[in-house]
Amino acid sequence: MGRQAEHVYTDQPTIARFNGMVEHLQNGARVRLHLADGSTCDGVVAARPTVQEFYDGGGNEGSNGVVHLEQLGTSEWKRYIWFDQIERIEHLDSDAQLRA
């Protein structure tokens, strides 16, 4: 993953929200991500994500993150979702949920 992101954030509430999401995106967790566009994406967290520094198209530096999802039983399906696109995290392997 490069150092470019479509959107970066510098405000503390958004960065705190991203850090809270990391706690719910543990390696191996089965999750359904409810996205800002109204769609959902189910998968297994392939590696625990982190909040990182990126640059947007205007050269502004700020924070964002990416979660890498895979599907059980296949290595051919994978998806990368930016933190700022996640509205809610639903855990499929427990009752815990997080509204991002």
Rank of each mutant, 00 (worst) to 15 (best):
R32L: 05
L25D: 04
G43T: 07
S75Q: 09
R48S: 09
Q85N: 11
W77C: 00
F83Y: 15
I86M: 06
Y80W: 11
E90M: 02
A47H: 12
A46G: 02
T50G: 09
K78I: 04
E76Q: 11
E87S: 04
L25G: 08
R17G: 07
P49M: 04
R30N: 13
A29S: 14
R79G: 10
E23R: 07
D93M: 07
G20Y: 03
V67K: 00
E90Q: 08
G62N: 12
L92A: 01
Y55S: 13
N19A: 05
R88L: 07
R88V: 08
Q12M: 06
W82K: 13
D42H: 00
G57Q: 15
R88M: 13
D11Y: 05
G43P: 08
A16Q: 13
V44Y: 03
G58Y: 14
G28C: 00
G38N: 06
G28P: 03
D37K: 02
G57L: 15
H34W: 08
T74Q: 00
Y55T: 11
V66H: 07
E53T: 14
R30I: 08
R17H: 03
H7E: 13
C41R: 10
L25E: 02
G20R: 10
H91K: 10
V66D: 06
D93L: 08
F83M: 14
E70W: 03
Y55C: 09
A36M: 10
T14Q: 11
V67C: 02
V22Y: 01
D84V: 07
T10R: 15
S39E: 12
A47E: 13
G73K: 00
H24F: 06
G43R: 01
V45A: 05
S75F: 07
I86L: 06
S75M: 05
Y55N: 11
N60F: 11
T50Q: 15
F83E: 14
V67N: 03
F18I: 13
M21A: 06
L35A: 09
C41F: 01
E87R: 12
V8H: 04
N60S: 12
G20T: 04
Y55I: 05
N19T: 05
A16Y: 13
N64Y: 02
G57Y: 15
K78Q: 12
L69N: 07
V22M: 01
G20D: 08
W82H: 12
G73D: 04
F83A: 14
A47V: 14
F18E: 11
V67W: 00
N19S: 06
G43M: 05
F18K: 11
I81F: 00
F18G: 10
T14P: 12
E61A: 15
R32M: 10
E61F: 10
V31G: 00
T74W: 00
Q71E: 12
A47K: 15
D11I: 07
I86Q: 06
V31I: 03
D93A: 08
N64I: 06
T50C: 10
Y80M: 11
T50L: 14
D11A: 11
V66S: 07
E23M: 02
D11L: 10
H91I: 04
